[in-house]
Write a protein that binds this DNA or RNA. Structure first.
Lengths: 245, 245
DNA sequence: TAAAACTAGTTTGTTGACAATTTTTACTGA
DNA sequence: TCAGTAAAAATTGTCAACAAACTAGTTTTA
């Protein structure tokens, strides 16, 4: 079974169920993808005219798309220094993980209270698949990246809180994907992560909201520690190779 | 001393320190204020042309402003039914309070860890002023509204987490102000609220992050219970007067 | 009578041009 | 060589007109 088929679809992560109808939306999606995937480098400068020509549209709709990208923090506009793709510094990453800990903790709590038995069962199955895939060497990378997010995405939706799940999936998760893209980052040893995921699902199964929240928060703050180490290492290496020049 | 001077400035709540430079920004601020203050009624339909004429600008900048208002959830666009001011239903309010509980809890935790002694002292003084003002009958309304938010705003900033404090002040608090505007809502008995605020500050003084978070979360979920009752009451009355017709 | 099709009127989406501002470049004089 | 300044280029902000899509009302037809 090819790894790419283990999931029903990538849509779960895409979150844009609706087809883009306007140019503005289309270019919003395209730009978002370009930024997240790294096609547009972090911190790179952007001009309206350049993008308009590149996408073959006029500046009107483009500007609307830009305002939206600004709102979800993928673009940063500095008053008189133009516009840049956001740079995910260690500091920003820490802020994101902190907010994430609070929101996903709450999300897990609500999921424990509200998730249907069927959905819990399906979530549990998902974890089985993740477990299996650890041994499939080819699958590793995929699971460590998208699979992990898929789990968190499901919990967010299970909170049945539109605000919460929108905030997580349309802002925070996008930035996480972006961060991973940048460094070939492997957030955690997958076996440990899946173990933690399992515990969270067990808490949800027991309808223990308190525990689900606690475990989720630990899981995320634990992830942050590992990510932080990687980022620090990276920074040290960057510095080293800079000095070589 | 006139009540309006008890605070250094309203800016603390305005959060837009910078003067609007572009038309788009200006109209964004104006529209935001119009929505929050209730000048534009909840759920009322909006047309681009109407607004453009009203503000005397062309539709270009207006559309950018609209996209931003959409992003902070003050406007809702329904694919082919035009655009409306958001309607703060009880369900949405519950979602907001839930997200708020998570974020402000974290915020209080961080404040306890990071807030400078000076800032804590100043926060404590603010509470004294609130306390004093309870007896000034004229001040009541003001404190119950803006004063309360001012406290929460300070904690958010004290978290020293840009993301967190932006999220709270530029999205959640705006919606809370809007909700209060609608019904002449008095969220809590001020004496009780201030008591709870005091406890939170004490926890911060003791640098007890855990406790600060716990107390803040209780404070907010407690507030929600009271607000919810008011909303339910209101809804019941609305229904009653509807039946009269 | 009801459904389908057409038409007029609104509203939103898109564009290209013009204006204002800022940055870069090039030149002048110490 | 180094400011300092002025012209030029680039970039962002704004507008008005055009195009497409949708709504609603009216007529036509089964």
């Amino acid at each position: 079974m090819p790894v790419s088929n283990l999931y029903s679809s990538n849509k779960a992560i895409q979150l844009d169920a609706t087809e883009p109808k306007t140019l503005s939306e289309q270019v919003f999606n395209d730009l978002k993808e370009a930024i997240i995937s790294g096609d547009l480098e972090q911190g790179s400068k952007i001009t309206e005219d350049g993008l308009a020509k590149q996408y073959g549209i006029s500046r009107g709709p483009l500007r609307e798309a830009i305002r939206r990208l600004e709102a979800i923090r993928l673009l940063v506009r500095i008053p008189r220094a133009g516009m840049r793709v956001v740079t995910l510094t260690t500091e920003i990453m820490e802020e994101i993980y902190t907010v994430r800990e609070a929101l996903e903790g709450m999300s897990a709590r609500l999921a424990a209270e509200r998730m249907s038995d069927d959905d819990i069962a399906s979530l549990s199955e998902l974890l089985d698949k993740h477990q299996d895939s650890i041994d499939i060497s080819e699958g590793k990378k995929y699971f460590q990246r998208e699979g992990n997010l898929d789990f968190h995405y499901r919990i967010a939706r299970a909170s049945q809180n539109q605000w919460l799940s929108d905030l997580l999936s349309s802002e925070l998760y996008q930035l996480l994907r972006m961060a991973r893209q940048r460094s070939g980052q492997t957030p955690e040893r997958p076996s440990k992560a899946i173990q933690e995921h399992r515990r969270i699902v067990e808490a949800i199964e027991m309808r223990d909201a308190e525990l689900a929240e606690l475990l989720m928060r630990r899981h995320i703050s634990g992830s942050w520690k590992i990510v932080k180490e990687l980022l620090d290492e990276e920074a040290a290496q960057d510095k080293l190779s800079e000095e070589k020049l």
